[in-house]
Amino acid sequence: MYCAAFIFEPGTYDERFHALDALIEEAAHATPGYLGAETWRSPDGTRSNATYFWDNQEALRAFSAHPKHLEAKRQYTQWYKGFHIVISQVLRSYGDGKIEHITPNQRDRGQGVAA
């Protein structure tokens, strides 16, 4: 499993942004291997993070090459003050089982908390 964290500082969004954003969201959902996403915003609202989860690296690459995604990349300065992307391979995911998450819970309940 892979995740792509899109960390950004929002600027001003217009109608074109919202239309393109909706098309990109549709493209992500339509890409085989897309598992889901979650978003976070800093308490002061100045920075956001949208993390997308993918079954494999090929799926992530396919989404990255989608024409609408490429269009948005070319125009990002219209809508964002800045961005940073982190691509990661998920090595382990665990919890107490009380919170559902996109990543599988790999905690061995008989062994305590995994490291």
Rank of each mutant, 00 (worst) to 15 (best):
Gly45Ala: 03
Glu71Pro: 01
Glu38Ser: 08
Thr46Asn: 13
Ile87Lys: 15
Cys3Arg: 13
Glu25Ile: 09
Ala62Val: 11
Tyr80Gly: 01
His66Trp: 03
His66Tyr: 02
Ser88Glu: 09
Leu35Lys: 08
Ser93Leu: 02
Pro32Phe: 13
Pro43Gly: 11
Ala19Glu: 15
Ala114Ile: 04
Thr77Glu: 12
Ala30Met: 11
Ala37Glu: 07
Gln57Cys: 06
Val113Lys: 08
Pro10Phe: 08
Ala37Phe: 08
Ala28Leu: 11
His84Pro: 05
Thr51Tyr: 00
Gly82Leu: 07
Pro10Ile: 04
Ala5Val: 05
Pro10Gln: 08
Gln57Ala: 13
Ala22Thr: 14
Pro10Val: 07
Gln106Asn: 12
Gln111Lys: 15
Leu91Tyr: 04
Lys98Ala: 15
Asp21Ile: 14
Ala59Phe: 03
Ala37Asp: 10
Gln89Leu: 01
Asn105Tyr: 02
Leu35Gln: 14
Asp108Ile: 10
Arg107Cys: 12
Leu20Tyr: 06
Gln57Leu: 08
Ala5Met: 07
Ile24Ala: 09
Ala65Val: 01
Ala62Arg: 09
Gly110Ala: 13
Thr77Val: 10
Glu9Val: 01
Leu20Gly: 09
Asp96Arg: 14
Trp40Arg: 01
Met1Arg: 10
Lys73Leu: 07
Ala50Pro: 01
Gly36Pro: 00
Gln111Leu: 10
Glu71Ala: 07
Ala59Asp: 00
Lys98Val: 15
His101Trp: 05
Leu91Gly: 04
Gly33Cys: 15
Tyr2Pro: 00
Ile85Met: 07
Ile87Trp: 04
Asn105Thr: 08
Ile87Tyr: 10
Asp21Asn: 13
Lys98Asp: 12
Tyr94Met: 11
Ala115Ile: 00
Gly112Ile: 04
Phe83Thr: 12
Ile7Gly: 00
Tyr52Ser: 15
Thr39Met: 08
Trp40Val: 00
His18Met: 14
Ala4Gly: 09
Thr39Tyr: 02
Phe83His: 05
Thr51Ser: 01
His18Thr: 13
Gln111Asn: 14
Gln111Asp: 11
Tyr13Ile: 11
Arg74Ala: 13
His29Thr: 11
Gln78Val: 08
